[in-house]
Design a protein around this nucleic acid. Structure first.
Lengths: 361, 361
DNA sequence: GGACGTCTCGAAACCGCTTTCAGAAAGCGC
DNA sequence: GCGCTTTCTGAAAGCGGTTTCGAGACGTCC
């Protein structure tokens, strides 16, 4: 018995992999109090005689004590981390939203665990599982959803037990079948407003560079745009809509495909700024001047598009604030089983890419 | 006693805040084995009779068991999270590096905790402390360092016990007095090579938009640039160097300040692409055409600068690979107490912003 | 048939902290 | 001086896993 005791002690003396030997016990011992008192003194969770408190604090500082967050989380069943899942940090659209998330998290002393799926849906589900294991307070899904119904279902299956157990889920710019809090741009209205502005500039011949049709973001923006045109008696034939990936190169390819069809619109609407960037390059490559030969408009107002030549007309979304809103929603008290939706209006910003045209024709 | 037992039970039945009631005990019980066996079966850490293993796995799947990462970390003193600290996720320079970090982390099944300091040095130190509390396997410091000696010292004081206890620290593009692994662009050589290229284009009148002088990144790039000029007999007087913040607006302001001094260089070198973006806008605002009236070059090759008009000449750095290198270094076995430094060469990329000039004069 | 080595599996200690619960000490009114 | 609060403090029971250690159950070999 005492033999076993001894070997155990020896092992403890070899902090082979143990990163942090200074425990609450150490400081309690050094301060001449019990661990309970030390805990209370350090966290202020209960009154402790001033003299003892000072001794504890001094000992903690002296020893360089850093509490073990794992032990804390385990013992108190609390947790101050949130998980964020996105496609890729280097996408400026996401980066802008993430920046807002980080700001809001910092204000609330939350630690953010960030996961990039690189558009791999299996990885996305794996990350949700990991974040569940970490017992994250909330999981944020950011960015346009997924193009596969099966995976969506699998994702919801992973999310459901999490929310049922008290976990909070918030999504931004993405639909869910689950009842989760949502930050949703007014895609339809924004695109419609943009269309009206473009009509007012005199355009009548349009083309749209759209993303994957399964994405509600795409569907809504396309629908809004088309409706506003229709209201003005302008049609948007099917051959004027080209699909492409939600990336710079996707926009580039889509624009080339459009031109290859032989259509020559006076104005091109890319449903995403990122796609518009690629489109601008493609148009240039084909010798078209923007806005003299063709106008170009996007959606989102990522910082980048202000630096383009010409600066891009777009529908501005308060991206950073959308990120903050996601955190806010996720940390609000759960409002029954209902899900909240925060609608974010977009604002049309006319820049030089659509020129200040005298009405055509 | 039994009374106390009962109230405890009742409390357990109200998972008020407890996010996850399914524990290893549950599945062990359901499978009719001990928790020890269940643990071994789930982790494959020891041989378990096939029949039992199947029962455990089935029970785990049935109950939707998800291990508690906190308990695992606590019990096994292991951990699969790394912390990353940067200024702001929405800075494209950082975003590109972070993307590489995320990729490397995903390949190794690591969870990344990301913290943005928003250039607040107190916050940076606080984050190191939080990451220490999380017992992160490694802490990555990304991006240009700090402009304050006192804070730097405080940061090292926070880092030192961490590394001493076995934590790994890696920094990219940033100097440390501590012995930590480092991923370092060859700023001096890159800037010198750029200068030679610009000289070859015929330029003789230069100006530099530099960042805060305390940053070694800035100092190195400036020194390399100046040396290469000197080697060609070209001087760079003090009034041709303007300081500005390491941001788009910093570059903008610096360029305006330069012009306000009345100097008219034929070529402007912004030590950072991000600054160059602002500078380009400023030059335009003052009616200068790039590259006809003045050439402009940057450093880093962030994706954005390829989309500018004109595309920006710069020194390309493999940003994503630098991020991956940081993870790799941090997770390599500690090589004694020595610190490794991985030097990253830059590659001059001539684009239209410096034009294909016929040698001036 | 008994000594002995192998494989599995369970009991129990432990990781580092929080939080009850109860006891000690001190303050108070009578 | 005595019972009763009110405050502080410490012992100890977890939180949910991992891992050591030893005990059975078999198989093998003299």
């Amino acid at each position: 018995m005492s033999e076993r005791e001894r070997t155990r002690q020896e092992r403890r003396h070899t902090p082979h992999t143990a990163p942090h030997p200074v425990t609450l016990h150490s400081v309690a011992h050094a301060a001449g109090v019990s661990p309970a008192t030390a805990s209370r003194a350090l966290n202020g969770t209960a009154r402790v005689r001033e003299e003892l408190r000072d001794r504890v604090l001094a000992a903690a500082a002296e020893l360089g004590y850093i509490p073990n967050a794992h032990a804390q989380a385990l013992a108190s069943a609390s947790n101050n981390t949130v998980g964020v899942i996105c496609h890729d940090v280097s996408d400026p659209y996401f980066a802008a939203i993430a920046s807002g998330v980080m700001r809001a998290a910092a204000d609330r002393d939350l630690l953010v665990m960030l996961a990039s799926t690189f558009r791999d849906q299996a990885r996305e589900i794996a990350y949700v599982s990991m974040l569940r294991a970490q017992r994250a307070r909330a999981i944020l899904l950011i960015g346009s959803g997924i193009e596969d119904r099966g995976w969506e279902r699998a994702l919801d299956a992973e999310l459901a037990p999490y929310t049922r157990a008290g976990g909070r889920v918030a999504v931004v710019s993405r639909h869910r079948s689950l009842r989760v809090d949502t930050v949703l741009p007014e895609n339809r209205e924004g695109a419609a407003a943009l269309a009206r502005s473009l009509l007012a500039l005199g355009h009548r011949e349009f083309a749209v560079l759209a993303g994957p049709p399964e994405l509600t973001t795409v569907a809504d923006r396309l629908a809004g745009f088309r409706e506003a045109l229709a209201a003005a008696g302008v049609a948007l034939p099917a051959d004027r809509v080209v699909r492409g990936a939600f990336t710079r190169d996707g926009g580039h390819a889509a624009a080339l495909a459009l031109l290859a069809r032989g259509v020559r619109p006076t104005c091109v609407f890319a449903v995403t700024d990122v796609m518009a960037v690629g489109a601008l390059a493609a148009l240039r490559e084909r010798g078209l001047r923007v806005p003299e030969d063709v106008s170009l408009a996007g959606f989102d107002d990522i910082p980048l598009v202000r630096e383009l030549t010409p600066p891009l007309t777009t529908v501005a979304l308060p991206l950073a604030r959308m990120g903050q809103a996601a955190i806010r929603l996720a940390l609000l008290d759960p409002l029954g089983t209902r899900s909240r939706v925060e609608h974010i209006p977009g604002k049309v910003v006319l820049r030089a890419s659509t020129g200040t045209l005298t009405p055509v024709e």
